[in-house]
Design a protein around this nucleic acid. Sequence first.
RNA 1: GGGACCGUAGUUCAACUGGUUAGAGCACCGCCCUGUCACGGCGGAAGUUGCGGGUUCGAAUCCCGUCGGUCCCGCCA
Length: 598
Amino acid sequence: MRNKICEELNNSDIGKLVNLCGWVDRRRDHGGVIFIDLRDHSGFLQITINPDDGASLFKQAETLRNETVIRVSGIIHERPKDSINKNLSTGELELKVKDLHILNQIKNNLPFPVSIHDYENTKEELRLKYRYLDLRRGKLLENLKTRHKIIKVAREYLDNYGFTEVETPLLTKSTPEGARDFLVPARLSNGDFFALPQSPQLFKQLLMVGGLDRYYQIAKCFRDEDLRADRQPEFTQLDLEMSFVSEEEIISFNEKLIKKIWKDILNINLKDAFPRMSWADAINNYGTDRPDTRYKMLLKDLGEVLGNIGFNIFTKAVKSGGCIKSITIAGGNSSISNVRIKPGGDIFQVAQDAGAGGLAFIRVKGHELETIGAIKDNLNQENISDILRITEAKDGDLILLGAGDTKIVNQSLDRIRQYIAKNLNLIAKEKWNFLWITDFPMFERNEEENRYEALHHPFCSPKNIKFENSEKFRKGIEGSTANAYDLVLNGLELGGGSLRIHEAEMQKEVLRTVGLTDQEIDEKFGFLIEALEMGAPPHGGIAFGLDRITMLILGADSIRETIAFPKNQQAKCLLTQAPANVSKSQLKELDIEITIDE
RNA sequence: GGGACCGUAGUUCAACUGGUUAGAGCACCGCCCUGUCACGGCGGAAGUUGCGGGUUCGAAUCCCGUCGGUCCCGCCA
């Protein structure tokens, strides 16, 4: 049908007869001569049609509209010197049409223009509903190609190191812990359900037990939770697992993989080793376990200075086991007004939304501190110099203070820090600040449900704890740190992993710690425990969010820009209108009854 | 489940503080135009201002509800 594509054409084709297929991107009808920008997947070529080329051909050409699908045959000509278009790679060429076939016409007005310069201004709702048109505009196709290249680099890299790509089941078992499952009714055992995997976690561990040694997969994962710009109900992990490795070996191996991807895709050399930070340091200094280190404004603890100056809110915070912490905004005296940090102001609101009761502030003016009387009146000269030393604040700086429950103080100062960084344009956008977070706690206390929850998942192994007996375990495990690590880039979690538990007794004890009874352990994870009892090797791995990696590499605002057919925020596919009703007979076959009112 | 913002022609936007017949670019239809490249010129058609209710002499504009979209919190690694 065609023997060339637009991008391939160059001066050596002048004089040749070529056949091209594609879409009418634009037409310029001068009455006498008609110019068509022909677009295919590779690029553009201007084609021209003259009345002298034949009356019927010309008449047909007059009917062409944007997005008409055509096949043209003709001779490639050099354009007249004064009509060269430098914006086009084929701008010195044009095709004089001898033969024109209309392969398909458009029925009505298009829901949005396909031509590239209108790309930014299209409502996403329309782009999702008519995704094929959006793809045709090229930008999205480029994104998908970049995604493809990232996967290709990873595959080649992992293949070179002896990894085997294995597909694990999509129809699997619902497990407690973690996110809500997507369920699939099982017709052949009615009343029972499969669950779509939240990750291939247990299967990849079983592959290690099976002696595969090194596994990877471009794995679809499913989590039935609410969506965000960087969260879709189905998403893709670059998932891998290795046997007989230490935490250090996994981290340094994967660091090389990430560096390889950045080199091959962006041609960026990440020379230095990625910095490492313990979970505790991250929380203490940034208030979050995925700090954005592109800007400073670190959290500083002022509990010792302000805890007993006699200001009631501060005193209570420290006495009840909480803290007083601050962030320093350089030059904040001029860039941030009092209105914004007092009740009703936007920054105050950020603190309040994060759970903080209030937001105190100190403005540094020369060697003086300006703040509310209740604080200022209680400060002596030593307090003042302590504050200036700890907060590293200088003349003109603004110090924001949070006091109370440590978790809430951390959370609110973290959010304020991010908010102000964005607001004052403090983020060095060109930086790629990778960061390994290590030494996560094994568990987090869920006070509402009065139980422990696994911080990563309950298959991470605890650090420096050997199984001796259950009693010792129980005490040791609860407060221990895990052999777990996350990779953070510019404040976004790119991936995480751990050394897994490879001993049955240890695994049972950890599952008991998160509140499962022995019977539940047997029902839900019996197959895993059994496998661990049959010679499971020490193993560990990591999973990266492929959609997020692609998003960051593309500089996109949403992972939807990296996915061919994403869901909207209501988890609906606007193109197919899924999810949708199914017929009564389908439900009957499954013995399922819908009880909600229509 | 909660908060914020948004919804006007096929599309992107405008319409001041509530005030004539809701305008413009692109697209569409018709006519003209032989070197344009976001071609140009003249003319035309195109609207239940998401939907429903309320306030008002008068509503795209104000209020309430509802539907749809985006961002965020909760939730989720």
